Simulated assay, not measured.
Amino acid sequence: MNPTDRPRRLRADGVRSLVSETSLSASDLIAPVFVDATTDERVPIPSMPGHERVPVSEAVARVEEILDTGVESVVVFGIPESKDSDGSRAYAEDGVVQRAIRDISAETDAYVIADTCFCEYTDHGHCGVLAPDARAGEGLTVDNDPTLDLLAKTAISQADAGADMIAPSSMTDGMVGAIREGLDSAGHEDIPIMSYAVKYESAFYGPFRDAADGAPSFGDRRHYQMDPANRREALREARLDVEQGADALMVKPALPYLDIVREVRDSFEHPVAAYNVSGEYAMLHAASEKGWLDLEATALESLVSIKRAGADLILTYFAESVAERL
């Protein structure tokens, strides 16, 4: 007996695009920009082909290159000229991110998001100030509450510099509330917060730590980033950030956590972002260099899958190349 229900009827050229359920556009993408205060020239990032650290003097030119592809939003990461135990260059008025944001905001139409964290700025590479770890009986851990004050101070300095959005990524308990209170008290009530609400302690971050010079000098980040085994905890983290005033919720990484992207999408009405992280980017490039995968096709398919899972926004190192194809 011949089938009467034939899904293939809607897969023919012409109708296929009309019934496509998921769309991806350049305006969905956020491109990262690495600004390095220690260099006067662009420095390629070996583990992230096609990406560079750029000096502050090149920040505007770098963003203009991104805008030319159709991408409208950038997130700015900084490599400071010096580091200390408190990460004080993160909130310095003349810090690398603050200087870059002033220039980018003044000279381009980009929507500028500031990454708000300390791992690039502390001499120990952890995401806050340290204190003895009482639970372990020895060693050090990030001291949560003192870090909140510095996160708020950093966010205010970034907003003062012209950032359009603040994106705290430290997974510090109470970070959204502290930053919201700080921004409001400084007259920045209209600056939204895109919280890295669900950030896992992932093995996929390696190339980024090379790019941003933010690898921890000891231990790891399991005491403040989430266990990859946990799903329910993700909703708890997102709910806490919503209650504290988050305007958008980020899940990081993206591809190994598409189920979490969907859970957050289904549970909250807020915009959901997903971070297609450096390891996801690097492994597709590596497979492509071996001739095992088509880079353009797999990059596009990856981003469509993230969008299909429920992400409204995607922070990705593929932003420019995919946007040009779109």
Rank of each mutant, 00 (worst) to 15 (best):
H285K: 03
L284M: 14
G291E: 12
E289L: 12
T298H: 07
L303K: 01
G310E: 06
G291I: 07
V304K: 11
A286W: 00
E296K: 01
L293P: 03
E296Y: 01
A286S: 07
H285R: 00
H285T: 10
K290W: 11
S302K: 02
L293R: 12
V304R: 11
K290P: 02
L284P: 08
L313C: 08
A311N: 13
E296A: 01
A311D: 11
L300I: 03
H285Q: 03
M283F: 05
L295N: 13
G310Y: 10
E301C: 04
D294C: 06
A299W: 04
L300E: 09
L295E: 14
G279W: 04
L300S: 04
W292F: 15
H285N: 04
R308L: 12
S302G: 05
A311W: 05
E301Y: 02
D312I: 00
A297L: 10
A297S: 08
R308T: 12
A286F: 00
V304W: 09
L284Q: 12
L313T: 12
L284A: 13
E301G: 03
M283P: 08
K290G: 15
A287L: 12
H285F: 00
L303V: 04
A287G: 09
W292R: 15
E289Q: 15
V304P: 06
E301A: 06
D294P: 06
V304I: 13
V304T: 10
A311I: 13
A309R: 11
G310M: 01
R308C: 08
E289W: 10
A282D: 10
E280G: 03
K307Q: 09
A297R: 11
W292Q: 15
A287D: 09
G310S: 03
E296R: 00
G291M: 11
E289Y: 11
L284D: 14
A287C: 02
V304Y: 05
Y281K: 11
M283E: 09
K290T: 15
E301W: 00
E289R: 14
L303N: 02
L300F: 00
I306F: 02
L303C: 06
K290S: 14
E289D: 15
W292N: 15
G291R: 11
K307E: 07
S305W: 06
A282S: 15
Y281W: 07
